[in-house]
Amino acid sequence: MGPAIEVADLGVRFRRNRRGRRTLKDLFSGASRRSRPGEFWALRGVSFRVEPGESIGVVGRNGQGKSTLLRLVASVLLPDEGTVHVNGGVAPLIELTGGFVGDLTVRENVRLTAGLHGMSKSEVASRYEEMIAFAELEDFQDTPYKHLSNGMKVRLAFSVVSQLDEPILLVDEVLAVGDKAFRDKCYQRIDELLAEGRTLFFVSHNERDLRRFCKRGLYLDKGSLVLDGTIGDVLDRYNADHGRP
């Protein structure tokens, strides 16, 4: 079995103006890879491998490329340079409430979202009660999604996505939301998934969470990979670089 994730000389660039990423015209015209005015490289020259069952924490200040890297691994973005190879499906615990439909009920959204992530109708039916119970939404199953509180929406989304059987978990600050009781349930669920041998790719600013779940770390700064090492060494270097004790 090969690596769960393999990234080689990865680069992606954005525009600072409202046009954002390159247009289709740019892509098909074979436009130069050199940056044009108004463009910047969010990531460049990034390479690493993640073996199956590893737990990786990605650290860095805001705007240094962490979430962009996660979206490249999730195939939400395409690279401008280099390659990203993912061996197996991913369970994306990122932008959790995206994809839910406001006018559909909780029940309908569970079936729709789980199905879009690849669950069969029988799998959804067999896990439906567990997902609803985890989200603590037993009394809201026929409530339109748009009428839920933000906390309810996050609980529902985490509950559905964490039930996926994909071997790779992509997590982006999801544990920073919700009340303490729900966070504790999330911690327990992630512990269970890691015990099953899942691979974790975890972006967070929470040092306690990073030390709890991750053994290895990647430190990004200005779109470059500064350090790839144990999570302790990576956090020590990151804190030292930014004047933290």
Score class of each variant (00 low, 15 high):
residue 245 P to I: 10
residue 190 I to W: 00
residue 27 L to P: 00
residue 24 L to I: 14
residue 225 L to W: 04
residue 201 F to S: 09
residue 160 V to T: 07
residue 105 T to A: 02
residue 195 A to L: 12
residue 175 L to A: 09
residue 132 I to P: 01
residue 161 V to I: 15
residue 75 S to A: 15
residue 178 G to K: 07
residue 150 N to F: 08
residue 154 V to A: 08
residue 222 K to E: 14
residue 83 T to H: 11
residue 43 L to E: 00
residue 100 F to L: 01
residue 144 P to Y: 01
residue 208 R to Y: 09
residue 35 S to F: 12
residue 54 E to K: 00
residue 215 K to G: 15
residue 113 T to V: 14
residue 74 A to F: 05
residue 196 E to C: 03
residue 165 D to E: 15
residue 214 C to F: 01
residue 228 D to W: 01
residue 171 V to R: 03
residue 60 G to P: 02
residue 144 P to T: 11
residue 229 G to P: 02
residue 68 T to A: 02
residue 30 G to F: 03
residue 208 R to F: 12
residue 72 L to G: 08
residue 8 A to P: 00
residue 137 L to G: 00
residue 196 E to D: 10
residue 61 R to M: 08
residue 148 L to H: 11
residue 222 K to G: 09
residue 194 L to M: 13
residue 213 F to P: 01
residue 142 D to P: 06
residue 90 V to H: 02
residue 128 Y to S: 10
residue 193 L to I: 04
residue 83 T to P: 05
residue 139 D to T: 13
residue 230 T to Q: 06
residue 72 L to K: 08
residue 6 E to W: 00
residue 193 L to R: 14
residue 216 R to D: 12
residue 197 G to H: 12
residue 27 L to C: 07
residue 200 L to S: 10
residue 115 G to Y: 05
residue 236 D to Y: 07
residue 81 E to C: 13
residue 40 F to M: 07
residue 49 R to A: 13
residue 237 R to D: 14
residue 125 A to H: 07
residue 185 K to S: 05
residue 76 V to P: 01
residue 208 R to Q: 14
residue 21 R to C: 06
residue 90 V to E: 04
residue 215 K to F: 00
residue 74 A to I: 05
residue 77 L to S: 03
residue 227 L to W: 07
residue 88 G to D: 09
residue 232 G to Y: 09
residue 244 R to W: 11
residue 162 S to A: 15
residue 218 L to G: 00
residue 103 D to M: 08
residue 92 P to Y: 12
residue 55 S to R: 15
residue 93 L to I: 14
residue 146 K to T: 04
residue 186 C to S: 12
residue 87 N to W: 10
